[in-house]
Design a protein around this nucleic acid. Sequence first.
DNA 1: TATATACTTGACTATTTTAGTCAGGTTTAT
DNA 2: ATAAACCTGACTAAAATAGTCAAGTATATA
Lengths: 141, 141
Amino acid sequence: MKLTSKGRYAVMALADLARFDNINPVSLRDISLRQGISLDYLEQIFSKLRKKEIVQSVRGTQGGYILNKKAKEIKLTNIFDAVDEKVKTVQCKKDSKKGCNGKSTKCLTHNLWDELENHINNFFEKKSLEDLVKENTERRI
Amino acid sequence: MKLTSKGRYAVMALADLARFDNINPVSLRDISLRQGISLDYLEQIFSKLRKKEIVQSVRGTQGGYILNKKAKEIKLTNIFDAVDEKVKTVQCKKDSKKGCNGKSTKCLTHNLWDELENHINNFFEKKSLEDLVKENTERRI
DNA sequence: TATATACTTGACTATTTTAGTCAGGTTTAT
DNA sequence: ATAAACCTGACTAAAATAGTCAAGTATATA
């Protein structure tokens, strides 16, 4: 089980963005340099973030991206969701009526995975971008 | 982020095993049929579980596998560990002295991932095979 | 002792996912 | 005008995954 780079990058980039006010746009080029993420890849990621209205784009020279909401209102859940980073534990088919994977009995561990998913998602729902930035500023002082 | 089949199968198979007493060995063939997991794949998985002394093998006719410890003492952590299912969130190189990935600053989200890893591992350390089987029997009654 | 059952091991492979790259745009501040 | 920066879609190398396949070895039981 591991987090993919896409999800990680998205959070890293947004944390970078959140450090600046919501007035001056930050260019992907800057984020790319600071965070060491390929510019082209960032563009793909931000395209998704924009579609989910997490960021707003500012075109042209001196353009870039700004947060579309307050950092406090952006939860990790929203970010992961936007870039299709999902917490998946079970493959049991939903359509089978009685149990999992066409078996007549519900698989022994079905509830376990559900529980695990909730446990993880819970963590993501609590954490906001603001939390991230705060933690870092505090640590820096 | 998703769990791989190897980890899932390992837990499913062991939960199946744990339902029987520790005296009569259960053949992989039976588990394969009951859980819908390829026999060959199960063999790979059990080879690892045996090396980590989670199960014991009984060869010959009527042979199979039995748990090597009490179900209570086998935590999910142990199982995942045995089959190399690891919770991985960060790729930051440990050897770099100051920060992550050769950057001079520690990456903004580093602590987040650590926290997440702990959160998940914590879940795995608490759950034992016994818990799983219990939950299921209770539900069945 | 013959034999079927079941463990044991290692090598191989198709498929999928990931983590990008590349090419060719469009928009707009200066 | 032009350079900076966003925007989009198609393509791809490499890695991981989820197995399969082949050739064993060990042993309970008839």
